[in-house]
Write a protein that binds this DNA or RNA. Structure first.
Lengths: 152, 152
DNA sequence: TGATCTATTGCAACAGTTCGCAATAAGCCT
DNA sequence: AGGCTTATTGCGAACTGTTGCAATAGATCA
């Protein structure tokens, strides 16, 4: 049995990857991995801390945040900001994608990769800017709410 | 001399506008207006609190935050989120504009209205989404940093 | 001017997040 | 297995921003 036990890829090799960099594989970090492995997709910091605490009541928030920093350096998660500015994490291996949030109805949804490409092109053309479409949740009005406002 | 003293437009009429809605014109709110009038453009919550405290050492942060809520309802400021998710305010009467932040060199700059229009069009075409381009600071790589990364 | 109504303030508590620091413990080497 | 180095943890303090509540003080009307 390897040092990381039965975690699924890409989490099963995290221990080795940490050690290869002179970093350490600790029980606290393993707890964070377990939660992330189950949360595949998105998770907010608050959710992550809460779920770590469910597995290990002695979980300290600052340890979780610092573990996330390390995982981001390893490329296993990427942090972003939700519509209210709060931190949220994209868990690998999720494809690149953006989030849109409607300030009218409160919905948040993903922007498909093909649509994202068109938008990235627009930024590139406008300003030479290579936007990281996934980093912040973009806020505006969905088609329905925008139409309702125009009418009303 | 009117009730708001020598504040410049549109701040000189805030007192009346508040009263017209059954709200009140208080010394604390006046302090916030004075700072905003000088900060024309952008200001973060922390900067605002700090500058209010410089004028009136007894300034309480929660009062400042609540005043900002009221001013946003009046349309005199609009809140947004910086590259790190922190709150920041756009002070009227500034035109609509977006902010871009380069994760490479750390620079933040404004997106001109004409460029913003092209990007708004791209969102509208992609998803029917009416983006509020000014609400969040968009993160990515500026032309220079993107080119440097491509090279090596 | 004074009474009245209630918006607003000040304060304290709290939630999310970061940081400094001393104690702990992972990983390496013998 | 034991010792050493230092990354990491746990904890407390600080910072940003929100909320509940009792006391204060604008605004209005007589």
């Amino acid at each position: 049995m390897n040092a990381t036990g039965s975690l699924p890829p890409p989490w099963d090799s995290v221990g080795e990857r940490l050690r290869a960099r002179g970093l350490r594989w600790t029980p606290q970090r393993r707890t964070v991995m377990e939660v992330l492995a189950e949360a595949d997709g998105h998770i907010t910091s608050a959710e992550l801390v809460e779920q770590c605490r469910a597995r290990d009541a002695s979980t300290i928030p600052s340890t979780v945040y610092r573990t996330l920093d390390v995982l981001e350096e390893l490329g296993l998660v990427r942090h972003g900001h939700g519509a209210n500015g709060g931190e949220e994490f994209h868990v690998r291996p999720t494809r690149e994608h953006g989030h849109l949030h409607c300030a009218g109805c409160g919905a948040t949804w993903e922007l498909a990769a093909s649509q994202a490409s068109a938008i990235e092109d627009a930024f590139r053309a406008a300003d030479g800017f290579e936007i990281d479409i996934g980093h912040v949740t973009l806020v505006g009005r969905c088609r329905t709410c925008a139409a309702a406002e125009t009418r009303g």
